[in-house]
Every structure is written in structure tokens, then in C-alpha cells.
Amino acid sequence: MVHLTYFFAVYGSLINFIGINVLLALSLYVTLSAGQLSLGNAAFAGIGGYTAGILTTQFGVPYLLSLLAGALMAAIVGFLLGMPVLRLRGVFLAMATLSFGEVVRIAAINLKITGGAEGLLGMPAYTKTWFIYLVIAVVGYFLSRLRYSRAGWSFESIREDETAASAMGINTIYYKTLAFTIGAFIAGLAGAMYAHLNYIITPGEFGFSAAVNLLIYCIVGGSRVWYGPVFGAALLTALPEILRGIGVTAGPIRMFVNGLILLIVILFLPNGLISLFQRRRKVAVSVLAGAGIGDN
């Protein structure tokens, strides 16, 4: 028991950060599961975080209500953004969501209510570790149920072939917007919880590199099943500590290892590290699906 208390004193904040990153990765998983590459989820987390932080510090709103408000705000913005940008495909959607993210970041720097470049200060540390993992469990359960629902199958078919899905009578606009909005909601929730973890949030935390990190979590873990991003986020968030444990302290080497893992996964394990642990039959099927004949 003493050991456990010690372990938690040393790694408590790491465990919290893993939890937040897992939630953020799950938010991107929903969007990816419908085949939509969004780089806007970090910005949705920012919107949720700022909304919740402003509500608790300046209006005295209770914690749980502020979480809900942050998540809803992100979902509303996601819905409004999704309607026009989801007409774009592939890289163009990525760039549109990316520029949206930059506009959000710059707005947070320039607005008075968000505290400018110094960030928003003074959020009480309401977010507890058990609560983060409770939320992860609820979100994970929801996503695992979603996968085999009508919406989940629609996401899957849009991901495989949007034109074919549309020809089969699936309302692609509706389901793409739905995936995008659910993703924004989860991201906003994670951001709101993060705001009450750390005392301070700054615009830079929700920028381009944060968005890219989320994508890396999903790819490294595997974005075909909901626990893939969970695994990816946990592994990569803990990786600096793991490397330090085996004696690698230099920053550039840690960064290099990050990049190398990502490269190896995308080259050799297109369905992520999680596919190593799945049953062999499943792996074979998904590899076949991923290795269609190339044609532009």
C-alpha cells in the first residue's frame, strides 16, 4: 500500500495526462471511423476548456455543469463547422480543419476573456483521477456500442467508400456531421476536464502540434477499434517516462524514437500496434482490405 501511494505521488500527474490524452484520442477516433481526417479536435478541446474554465472561474458555475457546457459548446461549433467543411475530402478537409484550429488559437491569444497569450488562470483542481477514468469507461462503452449500431455501420461504409455508401442510400452528409459532432463533444469534454486539472490553460496547448499528436496516437494504436487509440495515447504519453527508465534522457532521442515508431507502424502495421494483439484471422482480413489495388 505504501508502494502504491509512492507510485501515485510520483506518477499521478502522468496518469492524469494519459487519461486526458486517451479521451482526446477517442474523440478523433470517432471522426476517423467515418473516414474523415480532422485536425480540428485540439481546437475543440480548447473551446471546451476555455468555456468550462471561464464558467467556473468567472461565473461560479458548478464543475459538472461547466463540463457539460464546455462539451456542448464544442459540439455546437463542431456541428456548425462540419456542415460546410465536410464537403471537402481527404487532405482538403485536413487543411480546412487545421486552419479552423489556427483561427481558434489566434482568437484565444487576442481575446480578453480568454486571458490572451498568458492563458486562462485560476481553475480549481476539480478533476480527479478516478473521474477521468470513469469518463473514459463511459465513453469507451458508448463507442463500443456505437460501432455495431446503425450509425456505426454507416460510419464504416463511408470510411470504406463514400460514393458507394451514398449510392446504397446512406445519408453521408448526416452521418459525417454526426461523427464530427460526437468527436467535437468528446474533445470538448476532455478539454474542459483538462482545464480543471492544471490550474492554467494556454492557447499554444491546443495548436497544430497538439492536433498532430492526437492523429499519431490514433495511428500508432490503430484506428479500426476503439481501444486502439486508447492504447496509442497511453503508450506514447508514457513513452518519455519509459525511455527515462531505461536511461535515455536526451530530448532529441525521445523525439526520434517517437517518429520512428510512427514510421514503422504506418509502413508495416497499417492497423496500428493493436493489430498485433488481435486474433490472426481478423488481422488477415483487415490487411486485405487495406491493401487494395492502388489507382489514383
Binding site: I216, F256, L260, L262, I266
Partner: peptide
């Protein structure tokens, strides 16, 4: 796109 991100990370770390 992903593998170019991986290369960017490695180049930057170098």
C-alpha cells in the same frame, strides 16, 4: 501524410 509527419519528427530531432 502520416509517414511524412514521422519523417518530419525525425528530421527535426536530428
Amino acid at each position: 501524410l502520416i509517414s511524412s509527419i514521422a519523417m518530419a519528427i525525425m528530421f527535426e530531432s536530428v
